[in-house]
Design a protein around this nucleic acid. Structure first.
Lengths: 199, 199
DNA sequence: GGCCGTAGCTTACCATCAGTAGGTTACTTG
DNA sequence: CAAGTAACCTACTGATGGTAAGCTACGGCC
């Protein structure tokens, strides 16, 4: 089997095993067995257990970024862009389910390189979000976009996990919740500067 | 040395080693060495490496919950409660620095029990937040409190990591950002039901 | 005083698993 | 057919999570 195909197959199996057992409990021997290949092949292609995890993460995040930015690009207004991106995000997470959740949360345990990979993925998401927001709000001085985007990304990750345990929630509902909470909050902030003492 | 003291000492050393090396790379032998005790003592008191991590997490989250709920209790209005809780949160995270970040993110890798511990901690935070919010907004039908609290908790965790890399940001600024983004967003939503088409 | 249960602690060991050395097969290229 | 190389293997090492069995010292009890 050619290397590229084998690598894809390995990453697919690895994603599954990591999700089933967790990174620590997953053994390279088992992954190799399930692939139907011997362990040194994994090391030949990915260098280390962490390298294999990084490859899985990188693939997942590339896919996620592709899906969300395509959705955002296709939408007309900034608000629609953000909403469409959010819906695509929650749909992707739901489709990839547990595997994604594990990959996402487990990288930190491993070391700088996997953690860096995760952070790079989040960075792309936050960049996408903050540039989208910047389209709408031309006065970023009031509310710095970067940390706001961090809040959005973190909030969405958390909400996605919550949705996993509440399967009746649709991606649209989750996206709408985030829009209501954050977008209108931000809009109010940027546009209207309401006095906080209202309540 | 009596057991309780020894346990505290072990947890203190473990938290540090986990933070320095990461959970995977941290070895029980090294922790035992630094404590000045032999490895079986760690297993006698904590059962397993994961058990030791869980103990560290449990202690940290108890401390965090204590700090934040005390701050919230001491504040008069719901808005002040939320703000005070947020400030206490960001101050706590900053003070515990890297150790906290690692403990928080590394549990998922380990297995159900440590992951459950983390989730339990988040659950307490979200409960605290949603009950605080419920004080303010008597119409939870419009915006379900539970998922909204998830978004807040996730956003704060993410923002805390961001603050770690931007040390010039104060806990007050971080809290204010969250308040602006979410509280006023929620308030607008609950109170005014603005039409989304404004932009 | 002398015995005994137990808390705190140790050495020495096992099993598992990440990672490696070196060799084999088979296909392509000249 | 020879040479090179890509895909793949068996068999090993070292580190580390976890355990078995025993040692020491102290407090209670006769």
């Amino acid at each position: 089997m050619p290397r590229a195909d084998r690598e894809r197959q390995m990453m697919s199996v690895a994603e599954q095993v990591f999700a089933e057992r967790g990174y620590v409990a997953a053994s390279m021997d088992e992954i190799a067995d399930r692939v139907g290949v011997s362990k040194p092949m994994l090391y030949e292609y990915f260098g280390s257990k962490e390298g294999l995890l990084v490859a899985c993460i990188r693939q997942a995040r590339a896919e996620l970024l592709r899906v969300t930015s395509n959705a955002a690009l296709a939408a007309p207004t900034p608000e629609d862009k953000l909403r469409a991106g959010l819906i695509a995000y929650f749909e992707f997470i739901r489709a990839h389910g547990q595997a994604w959740a594990l990959l996402r949360t487990e990288a930190a345990v491993v070391g700088p390189s996997a953690a860096g990979e995760i952070e790079a993925g989040r960075q792309q998401q936050t960049d996408l979000i903050s540039s989208t927001m910047a389209l709408y709000a031309p006065t970023p001085s009031t509310l710095d976009m970067a940390p706001a985007a961090e809040v959005i990304v973190g909030g969405c990750e958390r909400l996605a996990l919550w949705c996993d345990q509440h399967p009746e929630t649709t991606a649209e509902q989750a996206a709408e919740l985030v829009m209501r909470l954050i977008w209108f909050g931000m809009r109010t902030q940027v546009d209207d500067q309401p006095s906080p003492g209202r309540g």
